[in-house]
């Protein structure tokens, strides 16, 4: 904990400045690469920017972004709504948890792409199938982490709570659940990352739409400037979601400073 506060003691402006510096460096490397490799493979930063403006103006990028965000956030919210209660219940009722956990682990270890043909057969190629692919990717890490967090409640605190006469439900609400928060947040972060990957996977394998669809289109037709725009947009979504979850974590663990 001391180490964490040490690294946090670097002033925010310094971190921001360093990050901008690295960004400038990356852009420089990119420009160098574009100059030295064939233009048809690596577009220059300027060409990419022009492509971005074009795609935004003709409405393709906003449309695809919107479609992808609906798939991504919709699937993720469904995953959270399903995984949190299940993980909590599995942790709270030991027998149930031990019974189901092996199936959850088995499912988590199976590459989720393997299910796509089955999903298409049952749900078709539309938004339902896409949501389900995202859901399936995000749900496992959230279940597993929530379950682990609830099970790993601090036995010393639980005993303390028993000694002041707290009821089982009070112990669960006041000690066990709050103690699981850091685990849950870690699960959300992993789930969000896999969810984004699966958004693109779903858009490639079901009806081709959204950012994944554009990725395939521009990649297959070698329009590399446009292709780069899509890749960078996906990276930006990843950064935003991760930052939001990090802020949430900071808020929820303010007490640990």
């Amino acid at each position: 904990m001391a180490r964490r506060s040490e690294s946090a003691s670097a002033p925010p402006w310094l971190i921001a400045a360093m990050r901008l510096g690295v960004l400038a460096l990356l852009l420089l490397l990119w420009a160098l690469a574009a100059d030295n490799v064939s233009r048809n493979i690596i577009p220059s930063p300027l060409e990419t920017l022009e492509a971005a403006v074009r795609l935004w103006a003709d409405g393709r990028l906003p449309g695809a972004l919107g479609a992808s965000l609906v798939t991504y956030l919709g699937g993720f919210v469904l995953a959270v709504a399903f995984a949190l209660p299940l993980g909590i219940v599995m942790g709270a009722f030991g027998l149930l948890g031990r019974t189901i956990e092996i199936y959850v682990y088995a499912l988590a270890a199976t590459p989720r792409v393997a299910f796509i043909p089955l999903i298409i057969l049952t749900l078709g190629l539309g938004i339902e199938a896409k949501l389900f692919v995202v859901f399936l990717g995000a749900v496992m890490p959230i279940i597993i982490n929530t379950y682990a967090g609830v099970r790993q409640a601090d036995p010393d605190l639980v005993e303390m709570a028993r000694s002041v006469g707290a009821s089982r439900s009070r112990i669960f609400k006041a000690i066990v659940l709050p103690g699981a928060v850091p685990y849950v947040l870690a699960g959300l972060r992993i789930g969000a990352t896999i969810g984004l990957i699966n958004t693109v996977v779903a858009e490639l394998y079901t009806a081709v739409t959204g950012l994944g669809g554009l990725l395939a289109l521009y990649g297959n037709t070698f329009r590399m400037a446009e292709y780069f725009v899509i890749v960078l947009t996906l990276a930006a979504i990843g950064v935003v979601v991760t930052e939001v979850l990090r802020l949430l974590e900071l808020r929820l663990t303010r007490w640990s400073n």
């Binding site: 010393d156 605190l157 005993e159 303390m160 000694s163 002041v164 006041a174 000690i175 709050p178 928060v181 663990t253 007490w255 640990s256």
Partner: peptide
Amino acid sequence: MVFQNFRLIPW
């Protein structure tokens, strides 16, 4: 009851 390791709820 007072325990050796305080057992305060950190949050």
